[in-house]
Design a protein around this nucleic acid. Structure first.
Lengths: 271, 271
DNA sequence: CCTCAACCCTCCCCCCACCGGAGAGTCAAA
DNA sequence: TTTGACTCTCCGGTGGGGGGAGGGTTGAGG
């Protein structure tokens, strides 16, 4: 029956709790020394070691200290901790879901913005587009409804994004209402990505297009179309469908941005 | 060019930030009102709304406020946030791993202790055991090495536990060294559970056994064996193998417990 | 018995992101 | 002018300790 006692420094080494922490635990009555000398020196014994052990395990399970105190006061047996553990589990599950949501948002941001395209040309020119894999949602309606479709695509596939979002216009002429529009998110080419919630995954084929860069808000995109069709006529080429608009810089997820800084590519395919 | 301004209460409603929070953000220079009257009344404008929006998004990504301030001061574009987002992602991933570890520990505790057995008999008696599914590790050596095997089993299968751990002794007579011992964890019967890391999953068959309950430390388990063998002789039955020891109450994961409260079942099977 | 290093004590302020309340001032409508 | 709704500043508190100042205690060596 050896009854080992420790002064606070040694006890701190044994339990791997700092002296400051032990002072604090004493103050809040969580771990009271077995004896306190008139000088104020604290002494701890073997039972304190066992209690400290239990406290640390419970702390690693993220119980707050006052709950740990209650638990240790009323529980004789690990069995008595089950109810509390279940409450804690519910809490941890909530936090886990939260962290996962944060993680998804971060991944979406990183993948969306991590792949900036540099685009300096401002006059119309011939460009050969590489094939790209996209997730798309096609609808009939007006252009200004496209935001909702992008939101859906971002929620579903934001984490796989590998380029600026684009839209395909399948009508051979301009329509205000009842247009045939396809919202696309460019995805990274490798890995399998499942189709979900009505969205389609497909590869847009390589194509030769006439392209013009538009800077500024969407309300003046008409000028860009004028320039590119002028160019086509000068080159003697005939437009086909679908035409593309690539939203190189748009509203963004976080920082406010003036529409003056928006950059859009208008791409019209030929033969 | 309408320039809408809000007093703090309205701005609070628009941004869903409390007035207290807005005071605080003003104090730390994170979100400064567009104007402050001599009376001290704060006025916010549309730019403040956009900034508040960005702050909230960044806050939902768990950036600390002073980092948000730096970010907003130096970033023109979402693209400039990517590096910070990657740092944050690493942090979130660490926390996620941590939370998952906590969750596993909680599940193990719940499943281990959630299935307490009530066992009151103390004299030897006949008992028919139901079949049980177990995860087991069989080894040759000494009894006091069994703890390490249970640790491994708990790490692998703690979350599926549905009863007290038990040991099987395959030797027909007592051996000190080089004994043939099998450490078993009782698992819940439903669901498939994979074999991992050398452990075996199997079902112990139903069996008729002579059983005695032992209370106290393992150093006096010999008395229990004496009682049960006396009982067998009195009944005229012959022991076979393997015999079982069920550790109904042992050291536990968290709370310290005196060995006086340990409860072990000794079960000797007959043909 | 003295000295010295190591150890220990209490007391106070600090961290983060606010919340609550007291007591006083301000603004617009009735 | 009164009322009532807003708003202000200031102070103190949260949880789980950390950092450091300023001073007391202990035990071993000389």
């Amino acid at each position: 029956m050896t009854s080992m006692t420790y002064r606070i420094g040694d006890f701190s080494q044994v339990t791997r709790l700092t002296v400051k922490t032990l002072h604090y635990y004493h103050e809040i009555g969580l771990l009271v020394p077995s004896a306190v000398e008139p000088s104020g020196y604290r002494w701890y014994d073997e039972a304190s070691v066992a209690r400290a052990q239990a406290i640390q395990t419970l702390k690693s399970l993220e119980f707050p200290l006052d709950e740990i105190r209650e638990l240790l006061a009323h529980a004789q047996d690990d069995h008595d901790l089950v109810e509390a553990a279940q409450r804690r589990l519910a809490e941890v599950d909530r936090r886990l879901a939260q962290e996962r949501a944060v993680r998804n948002l971060l991944l979406t941001l990183i993948h969306t913005e991590g792949t900036a395209m540099k685009q300096e040309t401002t006059s119309a020119a011939w460009v050969t587009l590489d094939p790209v894999r996209v997730a798309s949602l096609r609808y009939r309606g007006r252009y200004d409804q496209i935001g909702a479709y992008y939101s859906r695509l971002f929620r579903l596939y934001g984490r796989f994004v590998a380029g600026a979002p684009l839209a395909l216009y399948h009508d051979p002429e301009f329509r205000d209402a009842d247009a045939d529009i396809e919202a696309c998110l460019v995805l990274r080419p490798e890995g399998t990505i499942p189709e979900k919630d009505g969205a389609q995954i497909k590869v847009l084929p390589s194509q030769r297009v006439a392209q013009v860069v538009h800077q500024g808000g969407y309300d003046r995109i008409g000028e860009a179309y004028q320039r590119v069709f002028d160019f086509l006529r000068a080159e003697g080429a005939t437009a086909t469908t679908p035409s593309r608009e690539v939203y190189v810089k748009g509203p963004g997820m976080i920082l406010p941005r003036s529409t003056k800084k928006f950059v859009t590519l208008v791409q019209i395919p030929v033969n």
